[in-house]
Design a protein around this nucleic acid. Structure first.
Length: 487
DNA sequence: TTTTGAGTTGTTCGA
DNA sequence: GTCGAACAACTCAAA
């Protein structure tokens, strides 16, 4: 019996897994493999919190495979070499995998193609991690989209994404298993007590992802348009990391949402559509990254290359540690460090604060998020940071600068979120919870807050920082005008 | 080819 | 307190 290697990447599931489905349907023995290839992914290889998640997810995938009579082979190093070695060792004659869209993928696929061809191994590539194939979504003039609304409108006008397919009931093992590393050999677990907080907050793996899908569709989705903006409540789907690692199929989520929508009110459907548009943003991010690969490291709008970013290690560190003196910002940064995740409303605020108030390069923010987020995803991270900095696709206009006090009062009016993550402020009244420096000394004393001692004073003044950012951004716009005039 | 309308999430100021 | 305008000009995408 011939064997098919199923090369797992960001598709760590059995449900609606086209490469696995193909191998099983072919009636072959199946050799599931994951290869950790840190060198290939370079700067944007899995780091920090993502590595912890990956470790847990691989463990979970192996357990799921064993229930089906199979297991997961682990390798490390250059993927093309490892896959070829594995094929030789096992006698496999075909390799099936689901496609990725990162900048380095094209080169890797070419190398794989060359190597496989010379050995008579057939390759089978599938689309599975997006709703719509970024090669296909094009404007009327055949270009890639740079604006979300027309992009999404176009997507929605097309046929619905392919229906998901169920997990195979049985996976045929090879007569003999090829060699495999132990999970611990991949050295994915950081040697820090830090991971305890991640483990308390999340259940990586296909079952954990499915549980979050069910919980979201049962409850929060019906009030998503409003609820998603309130960081103190569970109003979002909590699916980002599960989607990133492909533990759940985005097409499965799409279909489940549709099924849930079919017998509900218009209000419900509008809320659910809002959520679906967020899945659309995930697709859009990959669309931009796939068509403009340089945006992982460079601004899409090239005039921003000249932007006068400031370097201030103390400011960067205060931001990372949640010690800026702005409660909403600090709560977000501490939630991030403690749980590997931050609420979206707060992500916008902390990123605006870093790139505008502190005028630090958006890459510094992207790098910290990359290290600390369990859902770190190159497409979403690049798109998000460039959106915040104003230098990306469909980016925020330069004068859109979040006011962390106002945002706190608007979206966390009672200070529930701040109190959870910045406990030294928990006895402040809602009136001052987002601006403790404006409280009277009696008020502060009553709440046990000593500014500059157990909670920092603001590291920058909002009005001053805002004006500084506006001036710098205006200059950037002006320099672009000059550059265009010179052409 | 040219024209037209629009573009995720905001803030501030003055009436 | 509430509301509309200004904050800019440009690029995008479809008509």
């Amino acid at each position: 019996m011939s064997a098919t290697i199923v090369w797992f990447q960001l598709d760590l599931r059995l449900d609606d897994q086209p490469a696995l489905g193909f191998a099983v349907a072919a009636g072959n023995a199946v050799i599931p493999v994951y290869c950790l290839d840190i060198a290939r992914e370079g700067k944007w290889a899995p780091a920090g919190a993502s590595k912890w998640w990956l470790h847990e997810s691989l463990k979970s995938l192996d357990a799921s495979l064993r229930v089906k009579g199979s297991r997961l082979i682990l390798r490390s190093g250059d993927t093309v070499k490892e896959l070829m070695a594995l094929a030789k060792e096992s006698g496999a004659t075909s390799i099936a995998f689901n496609r990725r869209y990162e900048p380095w993928v094209r080169e890797q696929e070419e190398a794989l193609q060359t190597a496989a061809q010379s050995r008579g191994i057939s390759l089978h590539r599938f689309e599975s991690s997006l709703l719509f194939n970024p090669d296909v979504i094009r404007t009327g003039s055949g270009l890639a989209y740079k604006v979300f609304t027309p992009f999404w409108k176009n997507c929605r006008s097309l046929a619905a994404p392919d229906a998901p397919r169920a997990a195979p009931s049985k996976i045929t093992p090879p007569t003999q298993w090829p060699s495999s590393l132990e999970l611990s050999d991949l050295k994915l677990l950081p040697n820090k007590p830090w991971i305890k907080g991640l483990a308390d907050a999340w259940t990586p793996g296909e079952a954990g992802g499915a549980a979050n899908v069910r919980a979201f569709l049962k409850q929060a989705v019906g009030d998503y348009s409003v609820g998603r903006d309130v960081p103190g409540v569970r109003g979002t789907s909590l699916l980002s990391a599960h989607l990133h690692f492909g533990e759940i199929s985005v097409r499965r989520v799409w279909l489940a949402t549709q099924t849930r929508m079919s017998d509900e009110t218009k209000t419900f459907r509008d809320n659910a559509d809002k959520f679906r548009a967020e899945l659309g943003w995930r697709d859009f991010g990959y669309n931009v990254l796939s068509n403009f690969p340089r945006t992982a490291n460079e601004p899409l709008r090239s005039e921003f290359k000249e932007f006068p970013w400031q370097e201030n290690a103390a400011h960067l560190r205060a931001w990372q540690r949640g010690m800026t003196g702005y409660p909403l910002i600090d709560a977000g940064m501490r939630q991030l460090y403690a749980t590997g995740w931050m609420h979206n409303r707060v992500r916008m605020n902390v990123s605006s604060f870093l790139v505008k108030h502190l005028r630090q390069h958006w890459l510094r923010g992207a790098e910290w998020f990359w290290e600390t987020l369990v859902d770190a995803d190159l497409a979403s991270n690049s798109l998000g940071w460039q959106w915040s900095a104003g230098c990306g696709a469909d980016a925020a206009p330069y004068f859109r600068i979040f006011n962390p006090i106002l945002q706190g009062e608007k979206f966390d009016p009672q200070g529930d979120y701040v109190k959870r993550w910045v406990p030294e402020l928990k006895n402040l009244t809602p009136k001052f919870i987002h601006q403790p420096w404006n409280a009277s000394s009696e008020e502060l004393q009553m709440a046990g807050v000593e500014l500059g001692k157990n909670y920092p004073r603001p590291i920058v003044d909002h009005v001053q920082a805002r004006n500084g950012a506006l001036a710098a951004l205006k200059m950037c716009n002006a320099s672009r005008g000059a550059a265009l005039d010179a052409e």
